[in-house]
Amino acid sequence: MNYFNQIATLVRKDLASELRTKEMLSSMLIFAMLTTVVFSFAFDPDTETVKKVFPGIIWVAFIFAGIMGLNRSFGGERNNDCILGLMLCTQDRGVIYLGKTISNLVFMYIMEGITLPILFVLFDYRLKGSLLLLITVVLLGTWGFIAVGTFMSAMAVNTRNSEILLPIVLFPLIVPVLIAAVQATGIIVNGGNWADTVNWFRVIGAFDVIFTIVPWLLFEYLLEV
């Protein structure tokens, strides 16, 4: 099997097992919606302030739900030593990283695709900018978060207190992509165009590329028997 076939097989395996249990996706979805509801209690949704914090609410909801998913991502592979099996049947450990990243991305995109419209409805927010740009920033921002998140999840699962360790090690690392994504989202929902957001897209793009390549290279060292 060549490289891409191996990745595709791993992604198919993750999607199939998730489709049968729906464990991760359903808890992510419920958690994202609950976060939203909590936010609407924390900030009065009728006031002007909520218009300003709305982009932040979107991303905090996504990232909290994402952390939940990431904690599960490699957790399942620990049962019956599945991770050893994965290591034995792939030539390159990077395949496991890319496969897991893609399947985590798919779960995140599904969760975001459902949560985002609900957020707009609950906060009665009118999108002033282009929907295409908003989708682009969500896709790219999530990619950066998941690329470094999948790597850290693989690391955290090998430690004693993995569930609490993951957010602590992950949050400081995703600061750049979080800032850029929140700023870009803020500009877009308030009617900004591509020229207003291009600098933020550059930050997100640079983060995505660097934090896909570096973890992919280092994954071999992370998964050693």
Partner: peptide, 15 residues
């Protein structure tokens, strides 16, 4: 990973 992140953090906050 942490050290590579630092310059990106810097540029993202610099705007």
């Amino acid at each position: 990973i942490g050290f590579i992140d630092v310059p990106i953090v810097w540029f993202s906050i610099r705007w």
